[in-house]
Design a protein around this nucleic acid. Structure first.
Lengths: 198, 198
DNA sequence: GATCACATACCGACTGGTTAGTCTGCCGAG
DNA sequence: CTCGGCAGACTAACCAGTCGGTATGTGATC
């Protein structure tokens, strides 16, 4: 019954804590979730939490870091693919919708609780987010330069337009609704591409 | 120096409280704003606050009610106008962007703090919001029925798409940025209408 | 292979600080 | 005199983070 280091049994404590925190933060919000509730949900005690994490805020930051890493990786993959811009933008736009829906908890935390981070950590997150935004924008601009997209709207605004709809997903999307993640993604990517027709 | 009842001097206490709460809620978030800070910003004490409002939550709800009333009124006016659907939808879509930008504080509170309301009050707000959504959706459907808008995307999704971008404004829009409210509104309304071209 | 030193992983009572909301009372106007 | 409008001290609850303590594992030494 040695469950100590690395073993193979049930998920290791740090991950259990992160999972519990994610669920609770999404459910009640960061401030409304007490550290006590998190450790109880994870089946440990405060000692364990503060053994692995420096503070409650670190837990939140870890959730962010996870989401950012995942989405940046996926965007890079789609953007670097060997296909026409329209295709690459479409795929990237649809993919971010799918992964957002598949991680709705992370998404609602991300968009609702950013201002709970200390200025320092907030800056860090904003910087990473900026990188993501730029990569996406580069796709739009490429299409605009090569004439396949309309130049009527500044590329920055186009990106914010699309991410607005992504952001908004956590407000209205219900897993038991009529549309699956893939369908929503196709529709939203369609709307974007249609808006960009010259 | 009698500033007591209703007089004409500086704004009456309930409104001062509401204004202070709005600013602070938008700045630090609902949970991070203490009642003490609100009353200090309004230049009164707790006694005054609890004389006019039943609880801190009531203050938040009042902010919501104000926003909802305003936006519903404006939407109704635009939707009931005597003009072709494209025009009415365009005007309504642009107007909600302008008023959102002009009340960014209310907007960020609205979208970030809804889950801080008790289930009961939350239901109330959702209902009002639903009414707004439906009115907007009716415009889209009308256009789809009469053939001026594409039917490729379900009307519900179209509405959520647009409101996603509105919702998102409080995240990225800066008053000192390169675009004024009217310009942003025109662009966003354009994007919507372009996406709806058959 | 027994003992010791030390580290990792975790427990849970406790503390210092904060907060929403209450309550008693003052004050000026009608 | 009384009543709305408000002041401000007070209370009960809560909560992030701390800290001394325990259990188990690991490697070195004899």
């Amino acid at each position: 019954m040695a469950r100590t280091t690395g073993g193979g049994g049930a998920a290791p404590v740090p991950q259990r804590l992160l999972a519990a925190a994610t669920r609770l933060f999404a459910e009640r919000g960061y401030d409304r979730t007490s550290v006590q509730e998190i450790v109880e949900a994870a089946g440990v005690t405060k000692g364990a939490l503060y053994h692995y994490f420096g503070s409650k805020e670190d837990l939140l930051q870890e959730v962010y870091a996870r989401v950012l890493r995942l989405q940046q990786e996926r965007l890079d993959a789609f953007a670097d693919a060997d296909a026409p811009v329209e295709r690459r933008l479409r795929d990237a736009a649809a993919d971010v919708v799918v992964t957002t829906i598949e991680n709705l908890d992370d998404a609602s935390i991300f968009f609702r609780s950013m201002h709970h981070l200390s200025p320092e950590k907030n800056k860090q997150v904003r910087m990473e987010r900026r990188r993501y935004h730029e990569r996406f924008r580069a796709l739009v601009e490429e299409g605009q330069r090569t004439g396949v997209f309309s130049t009527a709207t500044p590329s920055d605004l186009v990106v914010d337009y699309h991410f607005g709809s992504v952001h908004h997903l956590s407000t209205w999307y219900r897993p038991d609704g009529p549309l699956g993640p893939r369908e929503v993604a196709d529709h939203l990517a369609d709307l974007l591409l249609r808006a960009l027709r010259p």
